[in-house]
């Protein structure tokens, strides 16, 4: 006789929810009554697969898939659900916490990994695309048109500060978490 898979039995633990509620402000997430206001309010969910309410459900039940599925990365952190949740749950903050957990457990999308690498290299998640010595581009022109300096007073004007950022990343073990490779800033200049 064919074996019947007991697919209705799943593992419910407190593994993930316990991690989340270490942050006292997120403890209330256990009170989610699955009303659906968050999903219904979610502008991202109208175009993508994110179902905020289901993320909350899976988080409360500590189902691993909440970390491995890509849904948590589809949130645009617009905070609409956060504002409307009738149980006063900081929904968006729970999602951000879930992303941290996912990353800690090795679930990170290549595109996001690349962003962290750009951050490590330039000090910006979205760099201007030019340095002190290079040509100007549309962004620097736009800045000038608003009466701002061509190059912002960030690592773009102070390339040496990128080293400090990299140091911070090392001290917090962020580099290991997202597997960064540090090109030193001087190398970049060569």
């Amino acid at each position: 006789m064919e074996k019947i898979t007991p697919n209705i039995i799943f593992n419910i633990s407190n593994d993930i929810s316990d991690e989340i509620i270490k942050d006292e402000a997120l403890r209330i997430m256990k009170a989610c009554f699955q009303c659906g206001t968050c999903t219904g309010s979610c502008p991202s969910g109208r175009r993508t697969a994110i179902r905020t309410r289901q993320i909350m459900r899976k988080a409360v039940l500590s189902l691993d898939e909440v970390l491995s599925d890509e849904d948590i990365w589809l949130c645009s952190t617009c905070y609409t659900c956060y504002e409307r949740c009738p149980r006063n749950i900081p929904v968006t903050d729970v999602i951000i916490k879930l992303r941290n957990l996912a990353t800690q457990r090795g679930f990170i999308k290549p595109a996001h990994q690349k962003v962290t690498q750009v951050l490590a290299d330039t000090g910006h998640g979205v760099p201007l695309g030019i340095t002190k010595n290079s040509e100007e581009n549309q962004w620097s022109k736009a800045r000038e048109s608003y009466g701002l300096s061509k190059i912002p007073p960030t690592t773009h004007s102070h390339p040496e500060a990128v080293l400090e950022i990299q140091k911070l990343m090392q001290l917090t073990n962020f580099d290991k978490l997202v597997k960064l490779e540090f090109k030193s800033i001087n190398e970049g200049k060569k």
């Binding site: 009303c35 659906g36 206001t37």
Partner: peptide, 27 residues
């Protein structure tokens, strides 16, 4: 089943309701 998220007024004064049918998991 689902607590409604928001209401918009259409130009003809009828109303557009948005929410989730939580049984279908569908906005």
């Amino acid at each position: 089943r689902g607590r409604l998220a928001e209401i918009y007024e259409n130009p003809d004064k009828t109303l557009l309701l948005r929410g989730e049918d939580t049984f279908l998991s569908q906005p």
